[in-house]
């Protein structure tokens, strides 16, 4: 190929790539945009009776001097953890990670501890956990 032809072809390719990226970037931004939403999980007084209560992806844990909530999603790849009342631990049914009742990782492929979910207590005695989705 002659030098002039080569340069012309190269310029054509560069122009098409530039044109495509002008369209591709906005399209990618549009397609991947998600509005962050919050999900509120309400534990009514009757839900708070047990030491460990599960509701809509959140474990509410009542300890002698503290009430806190943990996200039930495994920090490895997001499966919902099971609570084993005998050992007092959370176990992942997909890849076998194990966590303590306070959410600390013990074993398995997960590397992080469980996320603590912020709680608020209402005047009527309900406890609200707010989970961020998306």
């Amino acid at each position: 190929m002659e030098r002039r032809g080569f340069i012309k072809k190269g310029l054509q390719w560069a122009a098409s790539l530039l044109g495509a990226s002008f369209l591709a970037y906005p399209a990618f931004s549009f397609m991947t945009f998600r509005k962050a939403t919050k999900k509120r999980i309400v534990f009514h007084p009757e839900d708070q009776a047990g030491a460990v209560t599960f509701k809509e992806g959140v474990y509410l844990i009542r300890e002698p001097n503290e009430i806190f909530a943990l996200s039930a999603q495994c920090t490895h790849l997001g499966c919902t953890l099971n609570y084993d009342a005998v050992s007092g631990r959370f176990a992942c049914p997909c890849h076998g990670s194990v966590f303590t009742l306070s959410g600390k990782r013990i074993s398995g492929p997960a590397r992080k501890d469980l996320y603590r979910v912020p709680l608020t207590k209402t005047a009527s005695g309900d406890i609200e956990a707010v989970l961020e989705v998306g």
Binding site: Q73, H76, L77, G78, C79, T80, P93, C94
Partner: peptide, 9 residues
Amino acid sequence: FAGRIFMNI
């Protein structure tokens, strides 16, 4: 669970 695992991977 498969969907969540796929997304997290």
